[in-house]
Design a protein around this nucleic acid. Structure first.
Lengths: 211, 211
DNA sequence: TATGAAACATACCGGTCAGTCGGTATGTAA
DNA sequence: TTACATACCGACTGACCGGTATGTTTCATA
């Protein structure tokens, strides 16, 4: 009974404590500004203990990000597999993202910030995992939308990037301060993406278009 | 005749050589990963020479960014002062941005990446200069568009953020590789912002809507 | 052409930090 | 209780890097 389903071994417990501490610190400060001593301290171990579980600082960072991307990928894949219009599925996906705690949301943006730290193998893995977690899933929904005629024909890759950036702006610290209600925010993002910012002539109201 | 219009003094020449070298390096790697020795080497001077012109690494970085933002602000202000619809003016602004060399375009995105390095005075100056260079100018155009009824009523600050993110995606390395023609890209960006991604019923074609 | 200040080079210091290593504590199986 | 393995500690090091102190060159001006 050393390893049942919900029971974590001692090693797994401290490993996840270290990763949790690293998440908080790396979200708050740059890669270089977070020392291994800080991570170890926040996790309640010493640097020696940390290096017993991770061979290097970079590998710790990678493990952290890859774990996070994988869990996000699983979460968002539910929206991809869902039935419904592209708009409904994107609403579900965006809603899931907005519902995450702020720290988890910001993690997705760290790739852009810290990606230059890594080279070769590690860099490729990070980029690939990020794409699988977010852009690729959105792209799948958008491709369906284009095929169904719900969306105008366009390069789905570019549309997915644009949508991702929309969402990232909507969940940024600035938006948290400026826009109160996350639900309104979600509506706003979707409306902008689907309908654009242009003023529409109000078609069938009595006052037709006047104010 | 030590200081005429187009003649640079020796000090000014090396200062700008240092800043140019810093631009290239800081675009490619994180703030912490670029050493003062690297910058000096790339600029053809030594670290002592560099520190003759800049009191610290941070002040060098700030000078670099503030100079760049100021030149961008001047460039984009021409689009703000221009006559025409919001769409025409945004097209001009975006076109100017797309026409810049890739390195200059990417500089605008560095603030988001490296802003955590700075605190207090320096940080405020950087943020303010960036906002004056890009978001505030777009916001001015968008506010006009809303006032004229060209754009649907909305928070112009938020719209400008979204437009900036849209442009940043369009000028990213990914877009450079995927989409060939910058002019097509510009049309695409504007169409997305104004009209959205939704499929529009084609109003007056013979085959009305069928494929 | 003498001179002094600005422009640079060279060598060095102080501090930081990733990573190491010998040793200790905590289980665990025989 | 012995023997072994895994988990963890904490002091240490070696390299790196921002910044400085001091010496050397350049060059405009008198």
């Amino acid at each position: 009974m050393t390893e049942t389903t919900a029971t974590l071994s001692r090693s797994e417990t401290t490993t996840s404590k270290i990763i949790d501490a690293a998440k908080t610190l790396f979200v708050a400060r740059n890669y270089a500004d977070v020392t291994t001593d800080m991570i170890a301290g926040a996790a309640g171990v010493t640097k020696g203990g940390l290096y017993h579980h991770f061979p290097s600082k970079e590998s710790l960072y990678c493990s952290m990000m890859l774990d996070d991307f994988e869990s996000k990928r699983q979460l968002f894949s539910q929206s991809v597999d869902m039935k419904g219009t592209a708009r409904q599925r994107l609403a579900r996906l965006t809603g899931d993202f907005l519902a995450l705690p702020a720290e988890e949301r910001q993690l997705a943006g760290l790739v852009r910030r810290d990606i230059n730290v890594f080279t070769g193998e590690d860099r490729d893995r990070l980029v690939r995992a990020y794409q699988l977690a977010l852009p690729k899933q959105i792209e799948a929904i958008i491709s369906d939308g284009i095929a169904d005629g719900e969306l105008a024909p366009a390069d789905p890759r570019l549309l997915s990037w644009w949508f991702v950036s929309l969402v990232e702006v909507a969940v940024s610290r600035y938006a948290d301060e400026t826009l109160g209600n996350p639900d309104k925010r979600l509506d706003h993002v979707l409306a902008l993406f689907f309908e654009g910012a242009e003023a529409k002539p109000v078609p069938a109201t009595p006052n037709g278009g006047i104010q």
